Measured scan of single mutants.
Amino acid sequence: EKTLKIVADSEEEAEALAKELAEKYNLEVTIERNPEEEGKYVITIKIKP
């Protein structure tokens, strides 16, 4: 299993990107607040072998 993390500037941007990735590529995608940067969100994508 591989994990890729993407940082987005807004929750709306994160949700839109996560939804597109999940639907288009059938990936497991989660969104959470970035504890290191206020106002940023981390999109985590898990790629199963």
Rank of each mutant, 00 (worst) to 15 (best):
E32N: 07
K2V: 15
I45A: 08
E12K: 08
E37K: 09
A18L: 07
A18D: 00
I31H: 01
K19E: 03
K46P: 04
I6F: 15
S10F: 02
V29S: 04
R33D: 04
E1W: 05
T3A: 05
T44M: 08
E32K: 05
E20C: 15
E23V: 09
E15N: 14
A16E: 06
E36K: 12
K5W: 15
V7D: 08
K46V: 10
E12V: 08
I31F: 10
A18R: 07
E15V: 14
S10G: 03
K5A: 05
E12G: 06
E11F: 14
E37C: 13
E12S: 07
P49Y: 15
V29A: 07
I31T: 02
T44A: 03
K2A: 14
Y25P: 02
I45Q: 01
E32Y: 14
P35M: 11
I45C: 14
E37I: 12
I47S: 06
I45V: 11
I6M: 06
E38D: 10
V29C: 12
V42T: 07
K2D: 08
A14V: 02
E20P: 02
T44E: 03
R33M: 08
E20D: 06
A8P: 00
E13V: 07
I31S: 01
E23W: 14
E23D: 06
L4R: 04
V42I: 13
E1T: 13
K19Y: 09
E15H: 12
K19R: 11
A18M: 07
Y41Q: 01
D9V: 04
V29G: 02
E37W: 12
V29H: 02
T30V: 10
G39P: 03
D9W: 13
R33S: 08
V29I: 08
V42A: 02
A14C: 03
I6Q: 02
E28N: 10
E36Y: 13
P35D: 09
D9E: 10
K24Q: 05
V29E: 00
E23Y: 15
A22L: 08
L27S: 10
Y25L: 02
E32T: 12
E23Q: 15
T3F: 12
G39L: 03
E12C: 09
G39I: 02
Y25M: 02
E37V: 10
A16M: 09
V42C: 04
D9L: 05
I43R: 00
T44V: 13
E13H: 09
E32W: 12
P49M: 10
E20R: 15
V29D: 00
L21Q: 01
A16P: 00
K40C: 05
E28W: 08
E12D: 07
K5R: 12
L27P: 00
K24Y: 06
E20Y: 15
A18V: 09
V42S: 03
I6G: 01
G39M: 04
K46R: 10
E23H: 12
K5H: 11
E12A: 09
A16F: 09
K2I: 14
A8S: 05
I6L: 07
E37Q: 10
L4V: 08
T3Y: 12
I6E: 01
E32G: 05
T44S: 05
I6T: 01
E15Q: 13
E12N: 05
P49H: 13
A18T: 03
E1C: 15
Y41M: 03
A22P: 00
L4I: 11
K24D: 03
Y41N: 01
V29R: 00
A22G: 07
E1N: 12
E1Q: 14
I45S: 01
A16G: 05
A14Y: 01
E11L: 14
I6S: 01
V29M: 03
A8K: 08
E11K: 14
L27R: 05
L4A: 03
I45T: 02
T3V: 13
A8M: 14
N34P: 07
I43P: 00
E37L: 12
L21W: 08
E38S: 11
E1S: 14
K2C: 13
V7G: 08
V42Y: 09
L4G: 03
K40H: 06
D9A: 07
K5D: 02
K24P: 01
K19L: 07
N26H: 08
K48I: 10
A16T: 08
S10D: 03
P35E: 09
S10P: 00
E23G: 06
A14Q: 00
V7F: 15
D9G: 10
S10T: 11
I45W: 05
L27M: 11
A14H: 00
T44R: 05
R33T: 08
A18H: 02
K40G: 08
N34D: 14
A14S: 02
V7S: 11
L27V: 07
T30K: 07
I47R: 05
T3H: 06
P35Q: 09
E11M: 13
E13F: 06
E13C: 12
I6V: 05
T30A: 06
K2E: 12
N26T: 04
L4P: 02
N26C: 10
E15K: 14
I47N: 04
L27I: 07
E28Q: 11
K5Q: 10
E20S: 11
E32C: 10
A16S: 07
T30S: 10
E15F: 15
N34K: 06
T3W: 13
L17P: 00
A8I: 11
A8T: 09
V7C: 15
I47A: 05
G39W: 07
E38I: 09
A18Y: 06
E32Q: 08
N26M: 06
E20K: 15
L4W: 15
P49F: 15
E23S: 14
E37F: 13
I31V: 11
A22R: 15
K5C: 11
A8V: 15
E20I: 14
E15L: 15
A22Q: 13
A22D: 02
A22H: 09
E12W: 09
G39T: 05
S10I: 01
R33G: 04
I43S: 00
V42R: 03
A16K: 12
K5F: 15
I43E: 00
P49S: 12
G39V: 02
A14E: 00
K48Y: 13
A14T: 01
E13N: 04
L4Y: 15
I31C: 04
N34G: 09
A16C: 11
A8C: 15
P49N: 13
R33A: 13
L21H: 02
V42G: 01
K48T: 11
K46M: 10
T44H: 06
E32R: 07
N34Y: 13
E1H: 14
K46W: 13
Y41C: 03
Y41V: 04
A14N: 00
E32V: 06
E11P: 07
L21I: 10
P35V: 08
E15R: 15
E36W: 12
K48A: 09
T3D: 05
P49E: 07
K24W: 05
Y41E: 00
L17K: 05
K46C: 04
L17D: 00
K48W: 11
N26W: 08
E11R: 14
I31L: 04
K19N: 06
I45R: 00
E37D: 10
I43H: 00
